[in-house]
Simulated scan of single mutants.
Amino acid sequence: MRPLSKNEIESFLSRFERFVDSEVKSITVQSPTVIEVRLSVQDSALGFDWIDLSFELSNVSEANLIDNSKLAYLDMTEGISIVFEDNKFVFCYGDYSSIRSAKDSALFVICDSIKYEELPFSG
């Protein structure tokens, strides 16, 4: 897995068009402080072919998660936001620009680090 640095956030989100119309495939709580989120998304670096991305969100301090059985009903027209503020990351569903506002999201994770891995599209 590759760490996502605070300086890469905007280019990363741009590469995947802010995850608009992507699909959240699964959310897995690996431990009390580690959550994995897997998405299918179109990658502009690959001619907009579909790939899967697995995110490892570590040292989680706060989260609001959606049950995997309800992920298919999540409307991803707003995509996701990743914000770095006060030495913390927030990974959330929707268009948010601060950790405080992201707490209004139906899905958010506040953590110390984000790593990601590009995987083959699982359909």
Rank of each mutant, 00 (worst) to 15 (best):
L4E: 03
S5L: 13
N7V: 09
E8P: 04
L13S: 04
S14T: 13
S14N: 15
R15K: 13
R15H: 08
F16Q: 01
R18F: 14
F19M: 12
V24D: 01
V24K: 02
K25N: 03
K25Q: 04
K25V: 02
K25A: 01
K25H: 03
S26V: 10
S26E: 14
S26Q: 14
I27A: 01
I27N: 00
T28N: 11
V29A: 13
Q30A: 15
Q30H: 15
S31Q: 13
S31G: 11
V34R: 09
V34D: 09
V34E: 10
I35C: 04
E36N: 11
R38K: 14
L39Q: 01
V41Y: 01
V41E: 00
V41G: 02
Q42Y: 02
Q42P: 01
S44D: 10
G47W: 01
D49A: 12
D49C: 06
I51F: 00
L53D: 00
S54L: 09
F55W: 00
S58D: 10
S58I: 09
S58P: 07
N59S: 15
V60N: 09
S61Q: 14
E62R: 15
N64V: 10
N64P: 06
L65S: 09
D67Q: 08
D67P: 02
N68W: 04
S69V: 10
S69T: 12
L71I: 01
A72R: 10
Y73G: 05
L74V: 13
L74E: 04
L74F: 02
D75E: 13
T77H: 12
E78G: 02
E78Q: 11
G79S: 09
I80H: 00
S81R: 06
F84C: 06
E85T: 14
N87K: 15
K88M: 14
F89S: 07
V90W: 02
V90I: 15
F91C: 03
F91K: 03
C92R: 02
Y93V: 05
Y93S: 09
G94M: 08
D95W: 02
Y96K: 03
S97P: 05
S97F: 11
S98M: 13
I99Y: 12
S101F: 07
K103T: 12
S105R: 10
L107P: 04
F108I: 07
F108V: 11
V109A: 05
I110T: 11
C111L: 04
S113W: 02
S113V: 07
I114W: 00
K115V: 08
Y116F: 09
Y116T: 03
Y116H: 06
E117R: 13
E118M: 05
L119C: 07
L119R: 10
P120E: 10
P120V: 07
P120R: 08
S122T: 06
G123C: 08
